[in-house]
Amino acid sequence: MNYYFKFKSELEKRHLWEVFIYLFFGGLATLVNFITYFVARDTLNLNLFTSNTISWIAAVLFAFITNKLWVFQSKSENFLELSIEFAKFIFYRILSYGIDMGVMFLLIEGIGVSDFWSKLITQIIVVIANYLFSKLFIFKPKDKIV
């Protein structure tokens, strides 16, 4: 555990801890997305759109919880504040979902890239976009009144 605190302390000194922890949980969200997608497609025999939608919903719910609690450590004063934060989160995730679907369609149908590689490429793009959305628009620190 001592190595963990040393590692965290070094990253915090360089202002990289938030990025690291975001990428860690982003990687887990990507894993949730991948597993759910291929289970829906291969086990349930669902089409590309339905499989991708199910995987997106699972990853978004996972990401909201991890982003709120561990990445940005956002505190909500009341249910309304939590609801607004969740609504913003959903709005920006719908935007990134559009990016995900558009790029997947372009890569698979337009260029002929396999769905595995298309999914991998889109997830890299989506993780970057979602970090920026979360940092700049969703979990930004509340202004303090002094």
Rank of each mutant, 00 (worst) to 15 (best):
G26L: 04
S134C: 09
Y22A: 08
T36G: 01
F91G: 02
I111Y: 00
I35T: 09
V126G: 09
K142H: 13
N47M: 10
A87M: 14
Y97S: 00
K8S: 05
F91D: 01
K6T: 15
V60G: 05
A63F: 10
L132S: 09
A129I: 15
L31H: 11
A87P: 12
F139P: 07
E109K: 02
E12N: 14
E77I: 12
Y97W: 12
K68F: 06
W56L: 04
L132P: 02
K68G: 04
I145A: 02
E81D: 15
S51R: 12
V32W: 15
E85S: 13
S51E: 08
F62T: 03
S55P: 05
T30M: 07
N2V: 14
A63S: 15
I128P: 00
E10F: 12
M1F: 13
G110F: 11
A29S: 15
N47L: 07
K119D: 12
F7K: 08
N78W: 14
D100T: 13
T36F: 04
F89Q: 05
G110E: 14
E10T: 10
L106T: 15
T36S: 09
I125E: 06
I94Q: 08
Y4E: 05
L11E: 03
E85R: 14
I121S: 13
S51M: 08
V60S: 09
P141M: 04
S55L: 06
I57C: 07
G98K: 01
N130Q: 07
G110I: 14
V126C: 11
L136T: 10
I124K: 10
A40Q: 13
L28D: 07
L61T: 12
W56G: 00
K142F: 04
K6G: 11
V32S: 12
F34G: 03
E85Q: 14
R41S: 15
K6N: 11
K75D: 12
A63H: 06
F38W: 08
V19G: 01
F105E: 00
I124E: 02
F25R: 11
E81F: 02
I128H: 00
G27H: 07
R14E: 07
F7Q: 04
W70N: 06
V32L: 07
E77V: 14
Q73T: 00
F133R: 06
E12D: 15
K6W: 11
M1I: 08
K88I: 03
F20W: 12
V126Y: 10
V60M: 13
G98T: 01
V126P: 12
S118P: 14
A58G: 05
L31C: 11
F25L: 09
F49T: 07
L95V: 13
Y22F: 15
V71C: 00
L28H: 06
A29R: 10
N78A: 06
T50D: 06
F72M: 05
F89C: 00
L48C: 04
G112W: 09
N33P: 01
T53K: 02
S114T: 03
S51P: 13
I108D: 01
T122H: 03
F34Q: 03
F34N: 02
